[in-house]
């Protein structure tokens, strides 16, 4: 029986820039930072209140998993905002929106009341997009 997600992967175009974005803008914490061959690190971060979930910021670079053609395709897909890797939550959407906006995060949609909830959409520094909503009390 599967119990939990321990790792998930977000493909990024630049690992250093992604580290800055996810830690200094979103407030995530670095969990693991280990060398992984030339020009690559095994870099994982976690949301501030979810230390057990490691999110790998995996660079899309040639070699290993990405052959030249795949690299080109992946880079275009990421840049074009094809991937929406996760739904994030916060305690207060309006405050978080104002804070992230002040830090330079680009929003595709400001906090909006939808039939399914209160939601905003933003993109990371590579082009991946995220839905941001408020925690639901169960």
């Amino acid at each position: 029986m599967i119990t939990k997600v321990s790792h998930m992967c977000i493909y990024v175009l630049n690992q250093d820039s992604a580290q800055d974005f996810y830690t200094n803008k979103l407030g995530f914490k670095v969990v693991t930072d280990a060398p992984m061959g030339p020009g690559m690190r095994w870099l994982t971060v976690c949301p501030p209140e979810q230390p057990e979930l490691e999110i790998t910021l995996f660079p899309v670079v040639e070699g290993g998993m990405f052959k030249k053609e795949t690299l080109k395709t992946m880079t275009e897909l990421i840049k074009n905002g094809t991937f929406g890797p996760a739904v994030l939550t916060c305690k207060d959407l309006l405050a978080t929106y104002e804070e992230l906006k002040a830090k330079g995060v680009v929003f595709k949609k400001p906090p909006t009341k939808e039939f399914y909830g209160f939601e905003a959409l933003f993109t990371d520094d590579s082009g991946n997009w995220f839905s941001l909503g408020e925690e639901v009390k169960k």
Partner: peptide, 12 residues
């Protein structure tokens, strides 16, 4: 520190 699936996928 790296899950083995990534290690093998990456050719390490």
């Amino acid at each position: 520190f790296i899950p083995n699936c990534y290690v093998s996928q990456h050719g390490l």
